[in-house]
Design a protein around this nucleic acid. Sequence first.
DNA 1: CACGTATTTTAGTTTGATCTAAATTACGCC
DNA 2: GGCGTAATTTAGATCAAACTAAAATACGTG
Lengths: 120, 120
Amino acid sequence: MDAGLISAIGSPRRREILRLLWDQELTAGAIHQAMPDVTFGAVSLQLKVLAEAGLVESRTDAQFRVYRVRRETLGPVAAMLEAMWTDALWHLKLKAELKESRRGPQPRRRRRSPTKGQKR
Amino acid sequence: MDAGLISAIGSPRRREILRLLWDQELTAGAIHQAMPDVTFGAVSLQLKVLAEAGLVESRTDAQFRVYRVRRETLGPVAAMLEAMWTDALWHLKLKAELKESRRGPQPRRRRRSPTKGQKR
DNA sequence: CACGTATTTTAGTTTGATCTAAATTACGCC
DNA sequence: GGCGTAATTTAGATCAAACTAAAATACGTG
């Protein structure tokens, strides 16, 4: 039982990512698209933290990077997380937590997905 | 399963307090004495957070306030925490985490326990 | 190898959690 | 009420995590 594990799931943003990855593999880009309120860079950094805690792993597939959850690391935490987001109110609560705990600068302008056509 | 619970145990300082209270009731002062690197005020604030998350409760005994863990709130987390601090290296790891995550101003001078004689 | 797409990394900014110090509140006792 | 001890609350300071924007890196394809 590593303390880094608890710190890792202590962040609502990282729990959001874990939830997305829970029952499917996703590319970094797909994860970002599901989280419209942060930049791709921010997602990538959180994925790095999760990977360092052993909670996710990735493989390279062509120019994509595919992430998946490493449930074996989670152990007793897995049941707790599942219980949490089986809760009907989970998504609502998470949003509240995210809003409350937001750090870093607010984006100056609406950011765009790097996958879509962007002039300039 | 409440998310506030996970956030609450996400802080190493609060885990330290939970550990102290795990198998005994303690007054706020006793908890503070066991944590010489923070002020009484800081301990009190963390106890408040833990209480709001339902992780501890307190009763008043004369001029003392006695805290205890509410294990029923912890549910599956209890096993995880116990596993963590059964780990021989737990105390070492916690110290590292505390050092790394320290916030707020460094104390200007050595602070004193409010229970001991203090001139001025 | 130039170009396009996907992702990570770097450099710099912001902000809430954590802290200190001091003021305040709470309780018991004489 | 006044004093002493215990604890909480308030006001202000600090700092690392979480963020943005931009630059750099990685990979495939014509």
